[in-house]
Amino acid sequence: MPRAKRSMPEKVSVQCRVNGHDATLLDFPMARLLDALREQLSLTGIKEGCGEGECGACSIEMDGRLVNSCLVPVAQAEGATIRTIEGVADGEQLHEVQQAIITHGGAQCGICTPGMILAAVNLLEHNGRPTEAEVRVALAGNLCRCTGYTKIFESVLAAVTVAEARD
């Protein structure tokens, strides 16, 4: 549960760009970006697993960096470019990582999946040919209780192969 106090300051208006669209968030400055995106923009693909930056289920990209949106105050999103799971596919065309997760069994219950996909996509944008060890490090902030990670590693590495074949 959010722990904000009742005697809160006024809400502020925050302008940012989310999944390629301009967006305005109206919230208390220290409200969690996680809640603002879920509640005001209905981006419910962002999940809350722990609320303290441990599990990574709420991972989003902010100005190209992977962040836990449960730890980001709304005020900090002013002027930011944000990508959530809803902005990863190109319309109905899935990203290679999304497709590979389906094909290789990288998702089970699915609750860590959006954050996991953003972490993997973020990795591939910085490092197009990661080793398995690099994949492990990049995903270390995203907890999964179902898969034992094995099929997630396979998925990410398979996505690299697909992307290379395409390019």
Binding site: L43, G45, K47, I85, A89, Q108, P114, I117
Partner: peptide, 21 residues
Amino acid sequence: RSIPRKEGREKVTGRARYVDD
């Protein structure tokens, strides 16, 4: 055969609906 998970597409796109959604 390894038929892909039926609800896989919803899960990888964030469209799958959990109770908090």
